[in-house]
Write a protein that binds this DNA or RNA. Structure first.
Lengths: 190, 190
DNA sequence: GGGTTTATTGAGCGATCACTCAAGTATATA
DNA sequence: TATATACTTGAGTGATCGCTCAATAAACCC
């Protein structure tokens, strides 16, 4: 009986994610989204409910894609090498709409107003940190690195450095590749 | 002949800086500013010209205050110790309106739209980096650290780590003090 | 093809945005 | 005290914000 939508939902979410990633939450208006997704307001709200709901979907997509890339890196090169390659990968990817981390950006933008999306972004960051922790744990089990530091402490620091790298990468006058290489090199000393 | 304004301009800039620092550029409306500064729109525009002009003044104030704090730290404890104490100082200061760096926050928020304030924030970040570089140079001259790394490379990395620290400090579930201590400790190994 | 169901359309809602300006008020000099 | 010169006031500007909804169009089952 029904009529099918003439769009691919996942494709729309991906395009919205890229737009939000580039322009941020406040910087992306519904006009922008309607233009990018080729949707009139009625269709938009029928499909997603609200701007914030779509932003939440975009965050999920962002986080899961990142986690998958890291997982693939680990399967190919092992845990330590994955952690070493990840910073450069993130910073050099020419397809990504921005260098900065969408999660930290959202957190910074919306934390002060206690917007639910800030808390959502933080939860995704926690999951990322847990994934890093797993990799450090695994690297210690394989004796790729020593066990003199706790893996959760290593993960916390690694994530912090990564966030700094990605802020730096957003700047014009900074050689982010060099910083990425330093972060990778530091891991060899563990 | 004239009538004097019944406010202290520097005080207004400071209060505006704190509000912008907490809420960001888009997150701070003129209504917010009028309430915080106790000014009606007419007075506001007579005094500052525009929201962006005041934001620029707030950035200057933010940057020069930070530079002064670091300078004082150096005069009291020497260059290396200043660099070691600075991260914890920035993260633990209970008076600061937010933990995150206002410069990097502004950069992340406005870079994509090529807003002039993003470039201004970046220039202040460059000045910060230069100040770090001076301190590393001085620390090498005093033989507090070795000369095996170039001071500009050390400064670039130090700033990146500091930016990461300050993003992490904005999160609820992260012990930023611990990360700050690690950054300080790493400097001892130079 | 008829009837049902859902998607699409786009004008337009109230609220808020940064900002303006004419009128009123206080302070200085003459 | 009179006048000139600011500063202050606050209603109101057009533009844009996220969002709604009644009307229309398309795809399915029978």
């Amino acid at each position: 009986m029904p009529r099918k939508p003439n769009y691919n939902r996942d494709d729309l979410i991906e395009r919205a994610r890229d737009l939000f990633w580039r322009q941020g939450w406040a910087g992306t208006s519904l006009k922008n989204l309607e233009a990018e997704l080729n949707m009139k307001p009625g269709s938009f709200y029928a499909a997603f409910g609200s701007k914030d709901a779509l932003f939440a979907l975009a965050l999920e997509k962002y986080a899961s894609d990142g986690a998958n890339r890291l997982r693939q890196l680990k399967e190919r090169h092992g845990p330590l090498c994955a952690l070493q390659r990840f910073p450069a990968m993130v910073v050099n990817n020419p397809e990504s709409p921005a260098k900065a981390c969408m999660l930290s950006r959202t957190l910074l933008e919306l934390q002060a107003s206690e917007h639910p999306l800030a808390e959502l972004a933080n939860q995704h960051l926690l999951k990322m940190e847990a994934q890093f922790c797993e990799l450090f744990t695994h690297a210690q089990a394989l004796e790729e690195i020593s066990t003199k530091h706790r893996p959760d402490v290593l993960a916390r620091r690694y994530q912090s450095d990564l966030l700094g790298l990605r802020v730096s990468a957003e700047r014009n006058d900074v050689d982010a590749g060099a910083i990425a290489a330093e972060i990778a090199h530091d891991l060899s000393a563990l």
